[in-house]
Write a protein that binds this DNA or RNA. Structure first.
Ligand code: FES
Ligand code: FES
Lengths: 152, 152
DNA sequence: CATAATCCGACTATTTTTGTCAAGTATTTT
DNA sequence: AAAATACTTGACAAAAATAGTCGGATTATG
């Protein structure tokens, strides 16, 4: 039940972005430096985030990324959803219907329930919440939301 | 955030076992046939389950596996714990302490919270619960807790 | 135009997962 | 004691997922 680094990095990058993009776009390079994540890898993640309208991009010099919404309107669940395939613990409990045989499936309810708990929890926490934490933790220093080794 | 098939299969096998082992041991071959899981793979899983005292084994002709406790004392969390390494979403939120730098880690609380929710939920459901469901679903037919393709 | 930035797609190395296989050990029945 | 049954162990391997890289195209600025 591990979250892939895709999801972990995306959350960290989003918190970083929210923290530093008061008005101007933030470049991936900056985020990559602060968070010690490969810029090429970040590109992949932000491409997905952009396609899912979590962030918007500005091309050219002075460009970068911006939040597409207010930080308190973006939940962690939104981010994970955008970069991972799924938060569902098993494949055939995807969506509400599951695979064709759920009326004969003893475990469907179990995995569906678990998936719902996970989604509920991650939807209840917003980027703003983590930003506030970060502000308290780092005061005037540069923030860094996790460490490369810990990947959290 | 997918559960590996190890965990999924182990849960299914345990429900099957609980359902059929009223007093006599159940052989892996039977479970493998009913649940369409490779017997060799099941052996690996049951070895771990036995080491964690989730099941006990009886050797020799007429032997097989038995639950080591009452079905309503075995939670799904116990099973997953026995065969998977961990239910923690990220590596350094393992345990309560996390890695060395949690006082500077913006995301620790988040992942810790998620892991706790997952554990709580899976601990709240027992093998007996699923057995009851199975009984209702299958009445007098042989049960089959999931399908090989769906792996749930 | 030169430069700074995003955007796009293909590619690869590593690790994890998901099994399989074979030889051996223990137990009970006959 | 022999045979049958079943568990034990450890090595091995194919396949999938993950993590990360690379080269180049596109767009906007100055
Ligand atoms: S707890 Fe280790 S970096 Fe967050
Ligand atoms: S929902 Fe598909 S086998 Fe359970």
């Amino acid at each position: 039940m591990r979250l892939s680094t895709k999801g972990q990095y995306a959350v960290r990058a989003m918190v970083d972005l929210a923290y530093y993009s008061k008005d101007k776009p933030v470049t991936l390079q900056e985020i990559a430096d602060r968070e010690e994540i490969s810029i090429n890898y970040l590109e992949q993640l932000f491409a997905k985030l952009r396609r899912n309208r979590i962030v918007s991009s500005v091309r050219g010099p002075g460009g970068g990324y911006l939040l597409a919404n207010r930080a308190d309107k973006i939940s962690i669940g939104d981010i994970i959803d955008a970069v991972e395939e799924s938060l569902t613990p098993v494949a055939c409990a995807e969506g509400d219907v599951g695979c064709g045989r759920i009326d004969k499936c003893v475990t469907f309810k179990l995995w569906k329930g678990l998936g719902d708990r996970i989604k509920d929890f991650l939807s209840s926490i917003t980027v703003q919440d983590l930003c506030d934490d970060a502000g308290r933790m780092f005061k005037d220093q540069d923030i860094k939301t996790g460490s490369r080794k810990c990947a959290a």
